[in-house]
Design a protein around this nucleic acid. Sequence first.
DNA 1: CTGTTAGCGCATTCAC
DNA 2: GTGAATGCGCTAACAG
Lengths: 331, 331
Amino acid sequence: MAGKVTIQDIANMCQVSKSSVSRYLNGGYVSEENKEKIKDAIEKTGFSENFFAKRLKTKKTCLIGIVIPRIDSVSVGKLLNGISDVFDANNYTSLIQISNLDSKKEVQCIQSLYQQGVDGIIVDSCGITKKHIEMAGQLDIPLLFTGQKNEYVNYKVIDDYAAGAIMGKYFRNFKHRNVVFLGVSESDESVGIYRKQGFIDAFGDAGTVRFVETDFSFLAAYRKGAEVMKSKPTAVICATDNIALGLMRYFNEQQIKVPQDVSLAGFGGYDISSVMYPRLTTISFDYTLLGQKTALSLLRLINGEEINLQDEIPLKLIERDSVQMAVNEIE
Amino acid sequence: MAGKVTIQDIANMCQVSKSSVSRYLNGGYVSEENKEKIKDAIEKTGFSENFFAKRLKTKKTCLIGIVIPRIDSVSVGKLLNGISDVFDANNYTSLIQISNLDSKKEVQCIQSLYQQGVDGIIVDSCGITKKHIEMAGQLDIPLLFTGQKNEYVNYKVIDDYAAGAIMGKYFRNFKHRNVVFLGVSESDESVGIYRKQGFIDAFGDAGTVRFVETDFSFLAAYRKGAEVMKSKPTAVICATDNIALGLMRYFNEQQIKVPQDVSLAGFGGYDISSVMYPRLTTISFDYTLLGQKTALSLLRLINGEEINLQDEIPLKLIERDSVQMAVNEIE
DNA sequence: CTGTTAGCGCATTCAC
DNA sequence: GTGAATGCGCTAACAG
């Protein structure tokens, strides 16, 4: 029965004009006396304002669009948590659309969100194409990317190159000379290129890095086990914790001991990596913080302010039990 | 620059009235000639209708509210996937709110969603309180619960009792006589009561079932390891795969072999359970299907149709490597 | 401090 | 078939 009462109704009840009610609602000048009356009437009727009318009038929709690649991913979950922390606090509601890791669908989602009248859009992208850049230029609302970066658009990302570099230096110091980097396709620039390249550059001439390509799933990594071990590496660095987990299963089956027979490391710092056995050494990304910063930045953009693209998210190497000093063969 | 063009603008361009444009948009009578002109104008300008104005006018918002307990959970992710399958296909957009496993917040989310003018709400609840029931009665839009059930509200759930029963029968047949059920608090009726009770009833007088309480996190389960093993059970049944995973870490550390020393099983059928070593025997729930059915049911409710509460989701026991026949001590 | 007035963009009578 | 007129519920000048 609620929901049908309008500000006109409560204006009538209080013998005031609806302007006064509107002012009451929006913090304008209203006499104490009327304030009381209006407050009572609102409580009694259970009145709630009509968002559509309000938005139609004010142009500010207080709606944010978010495009994510998939929903069932730990990192996306944390990112979303961070984002909603900020938007909840600022009275924005978010419309979430799922691109299913499809770049084309991603563009469609942006379109659809735009049509819904959102004030701005966050895109957790899996690959920025020319089409994305084109849209970013055409739309009259701000677009902010995360997950991937590109010089022609606004973005807020993890510093994947730096993360790779930390890991590269770590394994170099641990005297590993023959390692495998189990990574993903370069179509995902962040993980496929920057993260890998950071590792390679920092590892430098310490030894050889062989690259094996897989995707983000447990299963694919598990299946790559034999190929990974072909070169008898002393360590395997996986582009994500998930990948490490899949490989771990292969190791278990083959009775390959971690870290005695081979060291293993990942990226991500998911909860799961601390509950595996052995616990996985990894670089943790604070996706929740990334989400918060991304949301904050979008808000700035919406208000016409500038944002700082270089404001990076802290990275932390979490040393656990899956890596040991290499026992180098006599050469 | 797009987004500002209204039906009035394109009406002017075509020398027709905006009524005609509106008719064109909504499939009313328009002459072929005008149809063409309007179509061209729309394409040229990139016109898109203002959702708020439309919704203000038509009352149908085509918006659905969804309340979930957390975002970073596999089951919630799958559920959401199923839900969005259906809503995407029916041109509904969803507003998602996160309750953080807090019953009070859940009610607030429902309120907030209602105020946003959604046509209906799906609540993936972690506990239905009197407040929930009260709201369900007051609101003039349909409310559909999932995750938890209650005789006073509409719901669509997994049959947790049946799932527990399948597991109970399984362990009974496998001759286990001294087992531990590592479950969660009864405040979560579905998992805490029905799932457990189903197990106990089906296991029956085959032996003793000791109950140990934990929460849904890996870590808590890991910490309960010692308490779980105190009674030297031949099998541990965990209320979720996550819980099994946490316990597994304890077993690994303690050199307790699964399934040789103790059998282990979970509920959920998450991907992760197939990549653990040993692979976890579990009961898989099709959360995606549940999501689809839930969404479909809400649509029916919105259209004033009846829904079938008893239409259950299929359950499947997935036998893998973590359970073996009990080697019973001579008695 | 308050009421009156005028739209926001659209769908929908109702005459033509 | 089409256009003019009306109002959805609300905010924002504007004069009082």
